[in-house]
Design a protein around this nucleic acid. Structure first.
Lengths: 228, 228, 228, 228
DNA sequence: TCGTAAACGAGACGGTACGTCCTGTCTTAAC
DNA sequence: GTTAAGACAGGACGTACCGTCTCGTTTACGA
């Protein structure tokens, strides 16, 4: 349930070669590798234990020894699959992020923009994703071995979704024709992560006010937000 | 040089009683404590070593044993002053952040808003603060013992500076009368931190586009940004 | 080449049932067991790898994983044949010891006694047996699962050979009529193993002096050894 | 109680420099080394736990983790003092061997020779020394880092004691004038170690028969042993 | 000018977790 | 049913740091 995440970003430095064979090769070649195949049950148990422990104690206090114990697994079984705690938690993170990326086309630009913000804020507020990514922000920001794959998958996907919303909004003449999708992403989602780190409620009302500000601006001469 | 930070937020959990006596008590009472006084040289050496090591290896990989060794100091000398690695690094962080908060009043709202953004982006890009806070984002986000004092000092100070800019902008009729200073902070600085973590250049041109977007909005009916 | 050792002492605890079928059953029944027959090549490769590795790293540092790797064999193939590291090395040891037991009847008691000593000292000095048994002395002395079969085969055989020498020597009136064969074994071979463990050359000259001492004793009133 | 063994053979490869400073330096220089001094209580607890566990499970199955646990000590405290399990057990071994070396001068050569044998056989039979050395024979025989110090202390001391017995026996005209003390050691003690490894009772009666054989020899023309 | 008392560098202490290695067993496809 | 390959749960390895402690020494004040 946590496996087969939609992004192919694990091949870089984290997953070992054997793992890639099993996970990524053409289906017809599966099973050609000799030896006992890796246990999906162990894999799932490890990720589940990791998720629970990250929620309980946070990333910094997460101990692979405890993950192994809770998963009922030898430590080597973890290290066989992931090079480090970061790699393990990255896979968990990608799996947790996946459901919160897509923005549905509903025909109304403001509603779609709102989805962009609430997708992020609800994921951070209501799911394990928030706890996990809080613990990984520093690694993502400082360590390219973790940050690059994260950016190449989750961030890129989110930027792409928002770009489509912007494109549709321009087509509907709801948005300025020169609206920059990347800047839109940063203006819509940046405040959410700002609050995640530096404090502030991640409510739907906050999301709504972010969207209105992005639409109408703070300038005195700007059009007033439509009352709703 | 790293001491005497402008915020008095260290008393909560971090600094021990003896330390407070020395640092904070009325000058006439200094020296009343018997025994050899604490060494300022050691204090500075510890903070300098901490700064260098956070830059070199990040917060997670920072080891107090290494700090002590590099500072030429016994471990107990560190523990005598700070309860934990977090407390030590917090003091460093506050000292590094202090110079990058203030926004000068120049009479022009857009310029002042631009300062709000470039203050942040240049601090992150050009000074040790950027490297250090990259390594501490997770702790600030997850660990209230570090996050709360940080929010109560640096973040609050930055929000207050931006609030003054907003107030002046409203007074000048440059900004909508109902402009929310907190939301303004999040819209102006959020994108900067978004790029810090999730990738993207922290250039002055980026800062400029953020300010324009915040001023004029993305909506089609909004006034176009002044060409410059 | 290492198989078919002359002693039948492996059946006790060490060899498993399947192994016995193959090795010991009537030839006409060989091959009646269904399935692929066991590979003699694998068997020999395992024993050869074991011998080489015991010589290289000793018994304690011997790892069955390394034996399997060097023999080009799966670990299970080893465990299918021997219950443990001890059992494997015991078979090796017995094969190595076998050629060094027999003492030829030559008609001269002193020469035959000398053979008893040089048999041992040359085996320890010149063949793989010396290196292997050096690494196994502790196991033989401490672990009955290895020591008992070793004593029941190699030690017993050596005692029996020496007993025959003693019997012949008494018959020739070269030896005291009450000479104890077991004590003779210990007096003749004990010094050799003493030197093996506690230092000293295992030369033929040493063997010669041991034999003379055993024949004539250290007492002042004893007959002088014949000059030769 | 187990410390300060009478032999200075630990300096070779096993004890680290710091340890030597503490243990061996001139008393007036003790305490010059900075830092907290090593705990004698911990040292003793470790050796006691080691002795008990070697007796319980043998050398091969001895686990430093268990030693640490039983001694109530951190693993690092063991590794700070000894480089390896072998080095630790060697110190124990030397302490255990020390009381069983000396042979008292009683004026009677046979009695003194008997002491040489019973010293060894009783030590092996009745004290922890027997269990411990059984587990270390292979290391002593194969690993010069353990064998050399053992030979340079215990074996050398025993050879020296026996040499004195031989010298006194020659002076008393009880022993042949050309009796070789080293060969005597091997003939007297070799059989004891032979039985230790290869089986046989280590009784006082056995010791007595060894001594008589060494005195009178097995040859038919040798003088009969004095009946006693 | 001393004694008192706390801070100092150093490093040992009991612990916890690391990442690796090996054990003996099990599971696969191939033969 | 055996083969090579290799994953499995478990446990010990030797190392690295943790936060505390115990040394001998140093530094400053008050008596």
């Amino acid at each position: 349930m946590l496996r087969n995440v939609p992004y192919r970003i694990l091949d870089g430095d984290f997953r070992d070669a054997a793992s890639r064979n099993v996970t990524d090769d053409h289906p017809l070649r599966l099973g050609l590798r000799p030896g006992r195949p890796r246990s999906d049950a162990a894999h799932r148990a490890i990720l589940d234990a990791t998720r629970d422990l990250v929620i309980e104690v946070g990333f910094t206090q997460l101990r692979l020894e405890h993950v192994a114990a809770r998963a009922g697994v030898g430590k080597a079984t973890i290290y066989r699959r992931w090079r480090s705690k970061e790699a393990l938690v990255l896979e968990l993170l990608l799996a947790l992020a996946a459901p919160h990326i897509a923005v549905e086309e509903v025909g109304d630009t403001r509603t779609e923009l709102l989805s962009c913000v609430t997708n992020a804020s609800r994921a951070l507020n209501d799911s394990a994703f928030g706890v996990v990514i809080r613990g990984l922000l520093s690694e993502i920001a400082s360590n390219p071995r973790l940050g690059d794959p994260f950016r190449a998958s989750v961030v890129l996907a989110r930027r792409a979704e928002i770009a489509q919303v912007i494109t549709r909004g321009i087509a509907r003449d709801d948005l300025r024709h020169d609206a920059d999708p990347d800047l839109a992403t940063e203006l819509l989602v940046g405040p959410v992560y700002f609050r995640l780190v530096f404090g502030g409620e991640l409510s739907d009302e906050f999301a709504s006010r972010v969207v209105d500000s992005v639409l109408h601006g703070f300038g005195a001469s700007a059009s007033a937000p439509v009352d709703r």
